[in-house]
């Protein structure tokens, strides 16, 4: 039997909408029932098993819980109910450049962002040439990143994140980063990772790319898994659902 990389069992995630922040709102909430804060279940009993080395896509309309699922897998937030098991080190390309500081130089930010993502300084030292080459911003390493263009910024962040040591990679619509040349480069890198036998989980609206990359795909809708299986079948079910609605 293959080893499991990720097991989610009956995972629920609740968000509160319009939580009372002010004393006056809180008092109003005690007085009348309809002023109480509303609850929203972003995930409703999601169960997933992903084996080591699998490449899994997640699709679904906006607000179906895709991002919440990735956030739970990455450990940024915890489920309200249910259990999660994650076997291995997770790297996520969810929010590139969170932790960059505008006043610091590109080089300083490589180190800062690297340790935020869980690297050791020694690891960063070793991977620095690779990171710098991949980002393609050698000339601007000593420039504060506040002077970077948004493309340069994202390229640097991507270069740091993709060079992490990880067992499981989470990707959120990452193929649309930078110019055409960089997009090619990053797609190539992702293919490399896929072929190296690492576990990859990708959220995307680009169904064609998913068909090329993913062994399996999960279709989410309103916080529930509608279909889980071979990518081609799940994608056609998704498209069918969309045309039915229109």
């Amino acid at each position: 039997m293959k080893q499991q990389a990720v097991i989610l069992e009956n995972v629920w995630k609740k968000y509160r909408i319009g939580a009372p922040k002010k004393l006056t709102e809180m008092l109003a909430g005690w007085v009348s029932a309809d002023n109480r804060q509303k609850e929203f279940w972003a995930l409703q009993g999601v169960g997933v098993k992903i084996q080591k080395g699998e490449v899994v896509g997640i699709i679904g309309p906006n607000g179906s819980g895709k991002s919440t699922l990735l956030k739970i897998l990455s450990g940024i937030t915890t489920p309200t109910k249910g259990s999660i098991f994650i076997n291995g080190k997770v790297a996520s390309l969810l929010e590139l450049g969170a932790g960059f500081h505008p006043e610091l130089t590109g080089l300083e930010n490589i180190y800062l962002y690297g340790v935020i993502l869980g690297m050791k300084k020694k690891e960063i030292d070793e991977k620095l040439p690779e990171i710098v080459t991949f980002s393609g911003i050698e000339q601007f390493l000593e420039t504060p990143v506040k002077h970077y263009s948004s493309g340069m910024y994202i390229r640097l962040a991507f270069a740091v994140a993709i060079n992490l040591d990880f067992d499981i990679l989470l990707i959120d619509e990452i193929m649309a980063v930078g110019d055409a040349e960089f997009q090619q480069k990053s797609l190539k890198k992702i293919h490399e990772i896929v072929n190296s036998g690492k576990t990859v989980i990708i959220v995307s609206h680009d169904l064609e790319k998913l068909k090329n990359l993913c062994h399996k795909t999960i279709l989410l809708q309103k916080g529930k898994i509608i279909k889980n299986g071979e990518t081609k079948l799940v994608v056609s079910r998704y498209l069918q659902n969309l045309s039915n609605e229109n």
């Binding site: 990455s74 940024i76 969810l94 929010e95 969170a98 932790g99 935020i116």
Partner: peptide
């Protein structure tokens, strides 16, 4: 950004 997007 660090609170909502990073794990440590």
């Amino acid at each position: 950004n660090l609170v909502t997007k990073s794990v440590f």
